[in-house]
Amino acid sequence: MAETPAASCKRTPLFDLHVELGAKMVPFAGYEMPVQYPLGVLKEHNHTRENAGLFDVSHMGQAWLVGEDAAAALETLVPAELQALEAGQQRYTQLLNEDGTILDDLMVTRPVETEKQDRLYLVVNAACKDQDFALITEKLAGRAKLEIIDDHALIAIQGPKAVDATAAIFGDVVRTQSFMSQQVLPFEGKPCLISRSGYTGEDGYEISVPADLAEALSRAFINQDIVEPIGLGARDSLRLEAGLCLYGNDIDTTTTPIEAGLIWSIGKRRREEGGFPGASVIQKQIADGVERKRVGIQPEGRAPAREGTPVTDGNGNEIGKITSGGFGPTVGGPVAMGYVAASHKEPGTAIHLLVRGKEVPAKVVKLPFVKPGFYRG
């Protein structure tokens, strides 16, 4: 699908700051977004792994789902256990269709505030947000109301020193905040939603901040020596090394959560009871297994294997495809993810990649490629 021309792209509240910082701006999911800064993708990646990187993710879709049974209502569209969410707890899940395949993935949080227990906070992917919001509005009409949040930016601070950078602004209360939880803290007198989560495999936070304060908050971060602004290029290499799925590449309407290795995101009660689109398909796959599986793949040599590269068994038989691939700076070589026949899914299995008509040796490896740095308390 052709990318949106820059002239018709939307801009996030941080556009002017990106330009001031020398970012290379590119069209992405309908927005003009920074792909890299003068530091360059490789150094941005390494800086995030070693210190802290600041990301503009304001193109993502934020919304409140409001209703006394909002969690039960949303469970009719996703396989996660949402009714058991405690105040401030966050969960990853997927919107599914009747085939059990993935329309989008999203984060769902029950607010920490007592007066907001009638709602859930949702963050969906930028490229899918219009269709996601339309689907949720249509399917949950009469049970819950979707209120799109269009007056807030969303930024992420990621890396082993993200906690220090965030504590310098919001106080030490963020240091003991648990992974996959949210709290509300003020910045310049206005409340911000601070979730301890992210998309790099590192410790960090995603912060929903009023749009008129987004630049001030971002400057408060990048004015610290340990923080650098990071673009989409490094964001992709970081998430790939962390074994995290990119919607449209590693998961889409041709893949189920079970094939994608996301069974951990489906609650035990939901596995047994169903009650979500495609539940019978998912339950059968849990019971009987799947014919293909998402795996980590490590090519030999230095040349990366890109999306769409065929995977073969070495005898010329195609057994899968690469869905994400590139150079892993932390790993020091090429890394990839893709789907292979279940018979070849075990780590250590020898495979081949068909690159420009030539078979390149590779092997299946356990995900993630780098040890997660999530805060576990």
Results as ranks from 00 to 15, higher is better:
2 A>L: 15
3 E>C: 04
3 E>N: 11
4 T>I: 12
5 P>Y: 11
5 P>M: 13
8 S>P: 00
9 C>T: 09
10 K>C: 05
10 K>P: 00
11 R>D: 04
12 T>E: 05
13 P>W: 11
14 L>A: 04
14 L>F: 07
16 D>G: 09
19 V>Y: 04
22 G>A: 12
23 A>K: 11
27 P>K: 07
28 F>K: 11
32 E>F: 02
33 M>Q: 12
35 V>C: 11
35 V>E: 15
37 Y>L: 06
38 P>K: 08
40 G>K: 08
44 E>D: 03
47 H>A: 12
49 R>D: 01
55 F>D: 01
73 A>H: 07
76 T>Y: 00
79 P>V: 11
80 A>T: 01
80 A>L: 01
82 L>A: 08
82 L>K: 12
90 Q>T: 13
94 Q>R: 09
94 Q>C: 12
103 L>W: 05
105 D>E: 11
105 D>N: 09
106 L>E: 04
107 M>K: 11
108 V>W: 05
110 R>K: 15
110 R>V: 02
113 E>G: 00
114 T>R: 14
115 E>S: 14
119 R>Y: 06
120 L>P: 05
120 L>D: 03
122 L>I: 10
126 A>W: 10
126 A>D: 10
135 L>M: 13
137 T>P: 02
139 K>W: 06
140 L>P: 10
144 A>P: 10
144 A>Q: 10
146 L>R: 11
149 I>Y: 12
150 D>S: 13
154 L>Y: 13
155 I>E: 09
162 A>Q: 04
163 V>C: 13
164 D>R: 03
170 F>M: 03
172 D>C: 00
172 D>E: 14
176 T>W: 06
176 T>K: 15
180 M>D: 01
180 M>N: 01
185 L>N: 07
188 E>Y: 02
192 C>V: 12
195 S>N: 15
196 R>E: 02
199 Y>N: 08
203 D>R: 03
210 P>Y: 02
215 E>D: 09
216 A>G: 11
221 F>C: 01
222 I>G: 01
225 D>A: 15
229 P>K: 09
234 A>L: 11
238 L>D: 08
240 L>G: 06
248 G>F: 14
252 D>L: 03
253 T>I: 15
258 I>T: 05
260 A>Q: 08
261 G>S: 01
262 L>C: 05
263 I>E: 15
268 K>G: 00
274 G>R: 07
275 G>V: 10
282 I>K: 09
282 I>P: 06
284 K>W: 00
287 A>P: 00
292 R>G: 01
292 R>E: 13
295 V>H: 09
296 G>L: 05
296 G>D: 04
301 G>N: 07
304 P>S: 04
305 A>H: 08
308 G>S: 12
313 D>S: 11
324 S>D: 07
329 P>T: 05
338 G>K: 02
339 Y>I: 08
339 Y>S: 02
342 A>R: 11
342 A>S: 15
342 A>W: 01
343 S>D: 15
344 H>T: 06
345 K>H: 07
354 L>Y: 01
354 L>R: 14
356 R>H: 14
360 V>G: 02
367 L>E: 08
367 L>W: 11
370 V>T: 14
373 G>R: 03
375 Y>I: 07
